[in-house]
Design a protein around this nucleic acid. Structure first.
Lengths: 127, 127, 127, 127
DNA sequence: GTGGTCTAGACCACA
DNA sequence: GTGGTCTAGACCACC
């Protein structure tokens, strides 16, 4: 499983793990039912503490994206394509709303907001 | 100057100060050239450590929104309406792009993104 | 013999085996003197390790519900109907007391306790 | 703050902390708004790891019984007497139902259940 | 001072 | 082998 961790980011290692694995699952690179690397294995590979990986896995479990089978390991949960899209859209919405509120509070008009959104959509679509 | 701080938020006091003062300036409630409350005064009013205010002011200075005059205090920098809009839009853009990238990485199509944006714009407009 | 195991429960496989076989015996589905499936057979049927079944049988033996005959296998022990009821009631009592103690320590009055018990009895009786 | 930990119990240290502090709060020994001992202090006093205390505090926060103020510490949340009773009753109910179901599955009649409950209530009320 | 995060070991129950 | 729990250190941002 491919993840890239850096301690130069202001995002914690745990958070980086959660975000990246979340992406792998939602995008479909980790299909439902597949076993995740064991806590110890991933910790070893990524040179992080077991506790860090464990907490990341617990967080993903809390999101309903993975589940644990005692003595077996962690597995990707069953999510329909629709489930995944709904999940992504909900999370996206939760992040956008406060940002738009802030921008509005600073005096940006709807037209300015839309312009910024248009550019951001375009920029994010490249590369 | 009206700010509302709470130590129940997960946003740090410093971050709350920066965000709220930034909003006051960009929205125009604090016009250019006006003096900000002294560090000690604001700290006293808000029951907050001097260091917290100090660092918040430094952050705003780094953003180019305020400047210090030795021995006088902090003042709101000159920004044309256009400057303010540009500033807001730039900051907005910087926050939106990584979010959209993440959503795209999770498989959300342009149509799904736009749908979420449409809803978020509407929701954020109510207040 | 009918048991249902799942590795999605937080109850260990061993504990699930003990609880379910215990129920079969106490309810009378497994009459006294009857031979239990061999360790290997049950392990095979249930896709579970031999060790898991072994330990479950040992636990049931410790409870006095089954006994082993060297070279023959495990058998359901002789228990009169009254014995079974006494056993169930004793086990029930042992589980209820600490729970009630805890609730009392949290300030629940006798009336509140009884109300909760009344509801729990009703809810557990449906299905 | 008085807690008693033992590593002889099969209950984890974390769980013991959660249960005991929960009791102190619900019973009213720790009144609303009061600051809990700092993670480090409690860890030192009780000779447990900081992480153990931290996870216990996080669990209590998840239950809504305490909350954290950054850089200040953990504090007991505001709960009306009624809130506390509701909380206790709900938790109690959640523990009783599966126990009663199990007893019923083993053939205990309503009368037997009630008899056991009666005795348990009495026993738990002594000392 | 506070909590938040992290490390590198360790022991346990369970499979 | 797996996860669950624990320890005893450590560094950081924040107050």
């Amino acid at each position: 499983m491919i993840v890239n961790l850096t301690d130069k980011s202001e995002e914690s290692l745990q958070a980086q793990l959660v975000r990246q694995i979340r992406t792998l699952i939602l995008y479909g690179d980790l299909e439902a039912g597949r076993q995740l690397p064991s806590i110890r294995q991933l910790a070893g590979e990524q040179r992080v503490s077991v506790v860090t990986v464990q907490r990341a896995y617990e967080a993903l479990e809390g999101l309903g994206l993975i589940h644990v089978r005692r003595g077996k390991g962690y597995f990707v949960s069953e999510l329909s394509h629709e489930d995944r899209m709904t999940f992504s859209r909900t999370q996206l919405l939760a992040r956008l709303v406060p940002i738009f509120r802030q921008a509005r509070a600073e005096g940006l008009e709807a037209s300015g907001l839309q312009e910024a959104v248009r550019i951001a959509l375009e920029v994010s679509g490249r590369d």
